[in-house]
Amino acid sequence: MNRHQKEIFIRGIFAFFAFASVLILALIVMFLFREGLPIFKEVSVADFLFGQEWYPTYDPPAYGIWPLIFGSVIVTVFSCLIAVPLGVLSAVYISEIAPASIKDITKSIIELLAGIPSVVLGFFGMVVVAPFLQDTFDLPTGLNIVNASVILAIMAIPTISSISEDALYAVPSEFKEASYALGATKYETITKVIMPAALSGISTAVILGMARAIGETMVVLMVAGGAAAVPESIFDSVRPMPASIAAEMGEAPFGSGHYHALFAIGMVLFFLTLFFNLIADYISQKFKEVGSATL
C-alpha cells in the first residue's frame, strides 16, 4: 500500500463513520414512518391530532391525541419557565461574576446534574416531590403538571446553563473592555453588552433545553400522573406523548391500530423536536454576525 492508497483508505474510513450515523438516522426515520403512517387509513390527520379522546383499545377505538399533545406542551412550557431563569442566570454568574474557585465548583456540580439518570429523578419526584406537593397545597394528587415541570426543569438546567455559558464565554473581551472604558458598571456591562451579544447562543440553549424536556420519557411517565384529559388546572395530571408510548407500546398487539397510532405519536414527537432544532439552527445562523465586530 503506497502513501496515496493509504490516504484514500483513511478517507474512506472517516467517511464511513460520518455516514454511519446519517444512515442510522435515515433508517430510524424510515421505520418510524412505515409503522406510523398506516394509522391514517383508519383516522384522518386532523382527527388524530385534534381528537379529544384517546381510547385505543376499545371497540370502536378513538385515536385522538390532543390531550397528549397538550400535556407535552404544557409541561415543557412550565419547565422552561423554571429552567430558563435558573439556567441562564447561573451561566451569567459562572462566566462573568464568580471568582475562579467558586466557578470551578458550581460548573462541575451543574454538569454533574446532567449525569443523574432520569429514572432516579423520576423516583425522586414520585416519592419526595409528590407527597410534598400534596400535603402543602392539599391536593388530591401530587403527580401533576407542577411536579413534572419541576423535575423536567432540573433535567433541562444543565443543558441550558452549559450552552449559555459557552455563548457568554465566546463574547470577545474587547466588548467588555470597551464597555468598562466608557464607564459602564459591571451590571450594565452584563445586561447591555454581554447578554445581547450572546443572545443567539442563549436562545439556542433555551430551545435545546426545551427539546430535551419534550422528548424526556421516564420522568413524565413516573410523575405526570398519566391522565389522558386536557387539564383544567396546573395541579391536574396529564399524559405527555412519550409517557403514552412508553406505557402502552409493550403490550400493544403488533400491527394493530393501537400499535400504528403509537408510532404516529412518535412521528409527531419527531417533528416537534426537529422543529425545535431547526429554530435553534436558524437563530444561531441568523444572529451569528451580531456583535462579532473584531474584524
Binding site: W54, Y58, L143, L221, G226, A227, S237, R239, A247
Partner: peptide, 12 residues
C-alpha cells in the same frame, strides 16, 4: 366495557 374516565391516572 364502558370507557374509563380520561381523568384516570395511568400507571404502567
Amino acid at each position: 366495557n364502558a370507557r374509563v374516565t380520561p381523568k384516570a391516572q395511568l400507571q404502567a
